[in-house]
């Protein structure tokens, strides 16, 4: 069973890296908000949370942020990515453990907190509180993108339910 989990973690990390890296190649969704990204890679992190639990998912999250930061030639993004990712990860893990919310809402919360974390780091780095204005747009965008990813993850989880059940010993 451990080998199976390890392989699954490796596949999910690969998926997270590919989706995340593809996204850095695409032009920004909104030209005036270059930092608003859909966060496709987070679908893999959320699946890892569901299937493999917090420790595996945490490793995938950290590796994803670091590797994509290095690959895309923007290592300074790692700081922002890790700050947003950690905040969003902690809240999503907590919400899943509580179990009172649907996946899209959990994912939307993750999306909003990802942006919140990044903005807080940006304020700390630049010493400019005014950047918080961006939160109005980024939160809205993060909520919608996170919600969509939550729906995707929900259907991926359902579609693979039988296959994963048969694996259990």
């Amino acid at each position: 069973m451990t080998t199976k989990r390890l392989v699954r973690a490796a596949i999910l990390l690969a998926v997270a890296l590919i989706l995340g890296f593809l996204e850095t190649l695409l032009p920004p969704v909104f030209p005036m908000l270059p930092y608003a990204r859909i966060g496709l890679g987070n679908a893999a992190v959320l699946l890892a949370l569901l299937w493999l639990g917090v420790p595996y998912a945490a490793v995938i999250l950290v590796l994803k942020s670091v590797v994509i930061g290095l690959f895309s030639g923007a290592p300074t993004m790692i700081l922002y990515s890790l700050a947003g990712g950690t905040l969003s990860f902690a809240v999503m893990a907590l919400l899943l453990r509580i179990g009172a919310n649907g996946l899209p809402a959990v994912s939307a919360a993750g999306g909003i907190l990802h942006n919140l974390g990044q903005i807080l780091v940006a304020i700390a780095v630049t010493g400019t509180a005014g950047i918080a204005v961006l939160l109005v747009y980024l939160s809205l965008f993060g909520a919608v993108a996170g919600g969509v990813i939550g729906v995707i993850v929900y259907f991926v989880d359902r579609a693979t339910l039988r296959a994963r059940k048969e694996d259990r010993t």
Binding site: L50, L95, A100, N101, G102, L103, P104, A105, V106, A108, A109, I112, L116, I119, L120, I123, A129, G130, I131, A132, V133, L135, V136, S139, A143, V151, V153, Y154, D157, R158
Partner: peptide, 26 residues
């Protein structure tokens, strides 16, 4: 996992308040 649970409403309200507070203080 579920697509929607009733507590989602409370969660969304909470997040709106959180973002609003951050904006207010910043």
């Amino acid at each position: 996992p579920a697509l929607f649970r009733i507590w989602d409403v409370a969660l969304i309200v909470l997040l709106l308040v959180l973002v609003g507070l951050t904006l207010y203080f910043a």
